[in-house]
């Protein structure tokens, strides 16, 4: 019997010996308990992640009398932005009542130069380590990577002494230097891995053309480093903005970043706790990294994966 004949006969046979429907087309999907379980788990997990922030947002929009009623989850009956204004302008830390805004500007003054300087240093490091390794360069790199794992507490005190001795302790340049130091290990690793993945012919061709260290860096490597630089910027901006320890130790009272001011506002208040103002202040502090997170999307994840050792 030939293939053609079988094909011709088959449907007829089926119609005869299958009284109902023969298996045909896609397998009928019934919603399996397993699948429901998956969604239930994911939705509950999502609630776990969302509820605290939901509480913060609704509470920050309520007045204190409404908060005292204790309806934690209810939407604000009379939404008010006064707590937000207070948090920004009037919230008190000890005696000064200037709100969070000075902290915001301090954080800006710390973050912008720190990010720029640390990325410049790290890109040069990565480039030199990849294409111009000198004797001992790899040892230096090993020490640097070691630095990525060291508990900060081991290095903080010597840094305090060192910066004091040159008059930079508790100053803006001091905190910028500290952020540059602690950003260097992970950023150097990031850039080195990026350059090491580039075709080495690129470098060799430039060498043959007679270009030197800086020339190759500025006209060939730097223009190609845009993607990794974006990752580095995301990593550093969120990292430095969120920093608390270095800020409180090294920045000095007049330069305290937003996180330090927030903690002071919330945890040192005497008398009545203004929960709505505190929560508004917290949301304001979290706003910058959150905006970066939601705007950068997948880049953010890539940054985490790349900089997985950054604490």
């Amino acid at each position: 019997m030939t293939a053609a004949q079988i094909t011709a006969i088959q449907p007829v046979q089926d119609a005869q010996d299958q009284t109902g429907v023969a298996p045909f087309g896609p397998k009928p999907r019934h919603v399996s308990p397993g699948r429901i379980g998956i969604y239930v788990f994911l939705v509950i997990a999502a609630l776990f992640f969302l509820i605290p922030v939901y509480i913060m947002i609704v509470t920050s929009l309520k007045g204190m009398p409404e908060i005292r009623l204790g309806h934690l989850f209810s939407l604000p009956a009379e939404p008010t932005f006064q707590p937000w204004a207070d948090a920004w302008l009037h919230a008190c830390t000890g005696r000064d009542c200037n709100g969070l805004s000075p902290g915001f500007y301090n954080s800006l003054k710390i973050t912008v130069p720190s990010v720029i300087i640390s990325i410049i240093c790290a890109s040069i490091n990565g480039y030199a380590l990849t294409f111009w390794p000198y004797k001992g360069a790899n040892l230096l790199f090993g020490l640097l990577v070691f630095g990525a794992f060291v508990p900060y507490q081991v290095v903080i005190y010597p840094l305090i002494i060192g910066l004091s001795s040159v008059g930079l302790f508790a100053t803006l340049p001091g905190i910028i230097i500290v952020h540059t130091i602690f950003g260097m290990p992970i950023l150097t690793l990031l850039f080195r891995n990026f350059y090491a993945a580039l075709p080495v012919e690129l470098f060799k061709a430039a060498r043959v053309d007679g270009a030197g260290f800086w020339r190759i860096f500025f006209s060939i490597m730097l223009p190609m480093s845009v993607p990794i630089t974006v990752v580095a910027i995301i990593l550093q901006v969120t990292g430095i903005w969120n920093d608390f320890l270095f800020g409180i130790v090294f920045a000095g009272r007049s330069n305290w970043p937003m996180t330090v001011q927030l903690n002071n506002i919330v945890n040192t208040t005497t008398g009545v706790r203004e929960y709505n103002v505190n929560m508004a202040a917290t949301i304001l502090t979290a706003a910058v990294p959150l905006i970066i997170y939601f705007v950068s999307g997948r880049w953010f994840v890539r940054g985490i994966a790349a900089g997985a050792v950054k604490g």
């Binding site: 992640f49 605290p52 903005w241 969120n242 996180t259 505190n278 917290t282 502090t285 990294p289």
Partner: peptide, 16 residues
């Protein structure tokens, strides 16, 4: 949703 808390400062997490 699962990832956004990581973008925030641990200070914020602690206060929340």
């Amino acid at each position: 949703i699962f990832l956004y808390p990581f973008a925030m400062s641990l200070i914020v997490t602690g206060l929340v």
